[in-house]
Amino acid sequence: MTARTASLWQFRQPSVIPGFGLALGVTLSWLILIILIPLSGLAWRSSALGWSTFWALATDQRTINALRISFGTAFVAALVNVVFGVILAWVLVRYRFPGKRIIDAMVDLPFALPTAVAGIALTTLYAPNGWIGSLLSPLGIKIAFTPIGIVFALVFVGLPFVVRTVQPIMEEIDKEVEEAAATLGANRFQTISRVLLPGLAPAVLTGFALAFARGVGEYGSVIFIAGNLPYISEIAPLLIVIRLEEFNYPAATAIAAVMLIISFAMLLIINMIQAWSRRRYGYGA
């Protein structure tokens, strides 16, 4: 009883391992210096604007359109990534085919390739005179320099998030579950759609949220392919850069604050999904 009450009041549980103070001290000071002070600077600057100014800046039509484009294209791209990411993860986990190892390694390319390089490469491919764009333009399909181009760039940056969250969970699926479903008379399609996929739902949701969050903030790969027409294909991060170049710091701050508030809300939701999936399925997604 005394030990229990003591632990309630203790900041940390006793341990023989040394170095807690030093490690936590380094961690906290670095965190405060590099992350928290700069971010709270942003919070302070946007609150210093005053509510009415902030609201006017945040509801400016060009800002609203840019936010809508950023969040809309990121949402569509994350959906595309869910479909193809799950197929890709399934193929990598379940099937054998030549070149599988290389493809598995290639999935991480968007993590390793600088976004600017990805941007100019995708633009070159999908521009009307590019390898793929030239095949599509006679059909009247334009990808680069339209919002579809933004989606393409965001599909590229978001792909590994879905594959890498779903893949390990797929590897853990117990073969006996499928055998049980088959013995009970389910055909293969029913087994997959009613037994296997629901178990993957939390991982898929997490992958979706991560890809979506990354897509909303993405800048480097998008600006080359987007065409950057105000109100039509101008993303929110680009509008921040434009406002900064005009020395319009209040507007840049307001757009950033709105983006951050929405992003943090999403981070909270991701954490809640993860906690829920762990409680329900016993493993993290």
Binding site: F11, L24, L31
Partner: peptide, 27 residues
């Protein structure tokens, strides 16, 4: 290596830069 109060919160704070747009990180 240690159990202490606010550990989960600290981990979330460390992950913060991943959910901030690179442009905002510069801003």
């Amino acid at each position: 290596k240690f159990e202490f109060k606010g550990k989960a919160f600290l981990t979330t704070l460390i992950d913060l830069p991943f959910s901030v747009s690179p442009v905002i990180s510069g801003l």
